[in-house]
Structure formats: C-alpha cells, structure tokens
Amino acid sequence: MRSVLTIAGRQFRSYFNGPVAYIVICIILLTLGFFFWKTFFLFGRASAREMFRWLGLILVFSLPALTMGLLAEEKRTGTIELLITMPVTEAQVILGKFLGVLGLYAVLLALTISYPLSVSTLGDLDWGPVWSGYLGLVLQGSAVLAIGLMASSWTSNQLIALFVALTLSVFFWVLDKFLALLPTNAASALQWLSFDYHFQSMARGVIDLRDVLFFVSVVVFALAVAFRALEARRWS
C-alpha cells in the first residue's frame, strides 16, 4: 500500500510541474462557467442541476487529456522500466497511477464548489441533490479516468491514448441518446450501459446502488485490463 501511495503522490505532484493539468483545469472551469451562467437566469431557479448536466458532459471530453500520458509517456521515455524494476507489482503501479490522477480530479471538483455556493447566495438551494450530484461526478469521472488509464496502457503514444480514451468515453456517454431509433429491448440494454443515464439520476438527487455498482464495475474492469496490458510486456 505504501508503494501505491508513493506512486500516486509522485504522479499527483508531477501534474503541477507541467502545463497540461493547468490547461485542462482552466478549460473545464471556463467552459463550465460559460454554459452554466448562460442559461442560469433564464430558468430563474436556485438549482445546481444545470451545473451537473454540463459538467458531466464536459468531463467526458476533457478528462482523457489528464490520463493520456499516465503510462504511454512512461513507456515512450522508458521510465516505466525503472518504475517496474523497483520492488512493486504491476497492480500497485496501476493503482498508484489511478489514485494519482483521481487526486487531481478531486482538486478539480473542489474548485467547482464555488458554483453551488454562489447559487445558494441567490436563493434557497437544496443541498441534497448537490451532494448526490458530486457523488455521481466522482463515480462517472472515475470511470472515464480508468478508461483513460486503460487506453494509456495500450500504447506509447499519448495522442493515440487520448483518441482511444475519448472515443470510448464519448461512446458510453452518447449511448442513451439515440434510443428512440431502436427496438425496446435493445434500447433498454443500451440505456443501461450509458454513463449519462446512470449519472443523471444521481444529478437529480437519487442515489441508486445499481448506478454506483455500474460505475464501480467499469472502473474495476478498465483497471484490470490495464493491469493485464502492463503485465503482458513481460511475456511479449
């Protein structure tokens, strides 16, 4: 566990030594601000619902930029060799990397708390859906980050990792958007696989264990695949 935290800590700090994390966080916050305040006063409601709606979407598009380098860059520069030949297992490396980027994501989420706070000064804000919405963001974000880490484990090219992660996470987000075109059975199966379907119910204030388990399963699956990919190196 100590090694996992050491790897996570190094990863977390290294984000602040380079420009990528700052740029991504700025873009996320600016985009969010634009979309949120654009319509906020039209609704005339003291609700943070819109923030979660937008943030859920923005994060699906932007988080892969934070994960693209996690393993790909280490493979490109060869630092992975030093990391793996320390007394750690592949599982510890994957977990450490994941926790490192999750830490950065937590910082990002903490920065958005200004939105519900300012809304609460304008009217009577119901904090219940805010907290469940944040839980939803944590869960959906973890899934997107885990998928990004998985994509990063497949290549030594950051851009390919970015592209694959974007494709996958946007695919899972968009799944429930074309349901009307499909027969009912297929529609409900697809809906169940959609990130947005599970996330939106939490953004409304409903915490359903099935939604939680869905995201947790995606995370576990993606991390397991990343672990296998990293381990496969030994036998190639």
């Binding site: 100590r2 190094r10 700090r13 060869g78 630092t79 007394p87």
Partner: peptide, 24 residues
C-alpha cells in the same frame, strides 16, 4: 537502464526521495 530514463520534470532531490521511498 540504457539511456538513463528519468522523470525530467522532477527535481533531483525530489526524484531521489521518490526512489528511496519506493525502495522502502
């Protein structure tokens, strides 16, 4: 390893501390 792959964005001290911790 060949070509001395290091985390170039880290400070020397920071890096050696990291490796030391990884080594227990």
């Amino acid at each position: 390893p060949e070509n001395t792959p290091l985390y170039t964005e880290m400070l020397v001290l920071e890096y050696l501390q990291f490796v030391g911790k990884m080594r227990g």
